[in-house]
Design a protein around this nucleic acid. Structure first.
Lengths: 125, 125
DNA sequence: ATAACAATTGAACATACATTCAATTGTTAA
DNA sequence: TTAACAATTGAATGTATGTTCAATTGTTAT
């Protein structure tokens, strides 16, 4: 397979090399998840890829907390925390409940804890 | 506990609110991992948080591949792939072996696959 | 030696994104 | 109705980072 055959999403040649192991590439390509799986997955990991969000998620994996508590715990402004909570909401990682003036945040489900555990296992070795 | 007591790493007040649930904050704070655990962990997730790196990691979880193969598979330049592989190397997520002119990359260990599986479980629901 | 090519590198560029700041909303209590 | 305060929001700012481009390294073959 020559350089000019290099495929890409838009049909144009994008890579700058010949294929060295055509069989390997073909096997991997055929096993590759379709659609937007990778896009969704990388977006999920983005939520864990920021120090502040990671701490927020971890804190919420301990207890339900309001914005003030989180801001106090992490030594940050309510605004900064609130912006991050919005991202986490949009990613369906947290739920919230408003009681009076106070908004309480909780983890959406236990997948988050599992993802944490996998990560910590790798870091603590 | 009043606003002026709001703690922070540098000893200065940073948050802009009173603590509402002092007990909750104290429990969470005492359970909080020390040192640079969160820093390391967020850096780990950063490696999974980019579409290109995610696909590279996934491809390597299928088979050992060289830079050209990866570039061809993903329709990208060798340079772009090589830059990302460098990040993955520095994070100890991939190993490499040079044979002649060709450099073969492999996943460093099976933790990566586990992290993948957790993520996919969450995405595919 | 020289050519060819896989791979890496560093600088430049463009984009994404986290925090700050100021303003606003919504709720409770006086 | 007014004051106080939790929370959110949007714009602005600075920083981080992914890709491109051009140049370079290292290896094989002629």
């Amino acid at each position: 397979m020559s350089k000019k055959d290099c495929p890409a999403q838009n049909g144009f040649v994008q890579c700058d090399c010949d294929v060295i192991h055509e069989d390997v590439v073909e096997r991997v390509r055929s096993a590759m998840p379709e659609g937007d799986s990778f896009y969704k997955l990388s977006n999920l990991y983005k939520m864990f890829a920021d120090n502040t969000r990671l701490k927020v998620l971890w804190a919420l994996s301990c207890e339900t907390m309001c914005v003030c508590d989180l801001a106090f715990l992490l030594g940050m402004t309510k605004s900064a925390i609130s912006h991050q909570l919005k991202s986490l909401r949009l990613s369906n990682l947290v739920k919230y409940e408003k009681r009076g003036k106070v908004v309480y945040y909780t983890l959406a489900d236990d997948h988050v804890k599992n993802i944490f555990n996998m990560g910590f296992e790798h870091v603590l070795e």
